[in-house]
C-alpha cells in the first residue's frame, strides 16, 4: 500500500515535470495567468530600494502641456507591499509637498500627505483608487506598487508586440473600489517585463493604454523603463513619465519612510 502511494506520487510528480517542460500545457488559463504574474514579480524581487527622478508631462487634447517634477523613493516590502515616498519639486507652488504610501497586499493602503507651508502631515483616505494622481492620466492605483494579490489573472494567448514575443494576460482588480473592470497586459516572454497595458473602465469600455519604452537593466537583474506613456482614449489627454538617474540599493530602512522622514524629505 505504501508502495502504491509512492508510485502514484512519483507518477504525479513526473506529470507535473512534463507539464512544466512542455509549457505548462495542463494549467487552466487562470492558473497560467497567475503563474506569469508570480514569475514577473519574482524576477523583480530583491532590489531592496530605489531612488529615481521622475518627470511627468501632462498633455491636454489641444496639445498644450504642463510639467511636474518629483523624486520617488521605494523600499521593497518583505512579506508586505512596498513603501513609497514621493517629493515634489515642480510646479513650484507645490514644491516640498510629499506623499507617503504603504502598500498592503490585501488590506487598504495607508497614505499621508505633507504640506510644507503649514508643516503639516495629514493622513488621507486611501479609498481614492481611481482618482487622478496630481491631475495626470495616472490613477492612484496605477502609481502604487503592483502587488500580485491585488488582482486575479487569466492567460489569454501569445502575441508579438514591437518585435517582442509576449504573453497576453488579463487581470481583474480584487478591490471593488478600483476604477477598472479589467486590464489586458502584454508581458515579454524573455524577461517578463510589462510592455503594454490596456485599461477597461467600469462599463468595460477601453479607457486608457499604457506603454513602456527604453527598458534598461540594473544590477544585472532588474529592468526599469526610461519612459512610459498613458493615453486616455476617451478624453484625448495623455501623460508621459520620464525616469532619470535610477539608483538601487541605497541602504534605506523603514526609518526613511516614516512620519519624520516625510517631513524632512526633499
Amino acid at each position: 500500500m505504501m508502495k502504491t502511494n509512492t508510485s502514484k506520487l512519483l507518477a504525479f510528480k513526473f506529470a507535473a515535470l512534463l507539464a512544466t517542460t512542455s509549457g505548462i500545457a495542463e494549467m487552466t488559463p487562470e492558473e497560467k495567468g497567475l503563474k506569469i504574474a508570480i514569475e514577473s514579480d519574482k524576477r523583480d524581487t530583491g532590489f531592496r530600494d530605489t531612488i529615481v527622478e521622475m518627470e511627468m508631462v501632462l498633455t491636454n487634447r489641444h496639445g498644450e502641456s504642463s510639467n511636474r517634477k518629483m523624486k520617488l523613493r521605494t523600499l521593497e516590502g518583505v512579506g508586505d507591499g512596498d513603501k513609497t515616498l514621493i517629493t515634489f519639486d515642480e510646479p513650484r507652488d507645490v514644491k516640498g509637498t510629499a506623499f507617503l504610501s504603504y502598500t498592503h497586499k490585501v488590506d487598504a493602503d495607508d497614505q499621508w500627505l505633507y504640506l510644507p507651508a503649514l508643516k503639516r502631515v495629514k493622513r488621507i483616505a486611501s479609498s481614492n483608487k481611481s482618482g487622478p494622481f496630481v491631475g495626470s492620466e495616472f490613477a492612484y492605483e496605477d502609481m502604487t506598487s503592483q502587488e500580485v494579490e491585488k488582482y486575479t489573472y487569466k492567460y489569454i494567448g501569445d502575441a508579438d508586440l514591437d518585435g517582442a514575443n509576449c504573453f497576453q494576460i488579463e487581470r481583474y482588480p480584487v478591490d471593488p473600489k478600483s476604477g477598472y473592470t479589467r486590464q489586458v497586459g502584454w508581458i515579454d516572454k524573455e524577461h517578463y517585463r510589462v510592455i503594454k497595458i490596456d485599461f477597461y473602465d467600469r462599463k468595460n469600455s477601453l479607457l486608457k493604454t499604457l506603454s513602456f519604452n527604453g527598458y534598461q537593466q540594473y544590477l544585472d537583474k532588474y529592468w526599469r523603463a526610461d519612459r512610459a506613456k498613458m493615453v486616455n482614449h476617451q478624453t484625448g489627454k495623455s501623460t508621459e513619465l520620464l525616469w532619470k538617474n535610477y539608483q538601487f540599493s541605497n541602504g534605506y530602512t523603514d526609518r526613511d519612510f516614516d512620519q519624520r522622514s516625510l517631513q524632512n524629505a526633499r
Partner: peptide, 9 residues
Amino acid sequence: LQYTNEGWL
C-alpha cells in the same frame, strides 16, 4: 486623534 477608514476621517 484621527481614525481613518475608507473615505472617512
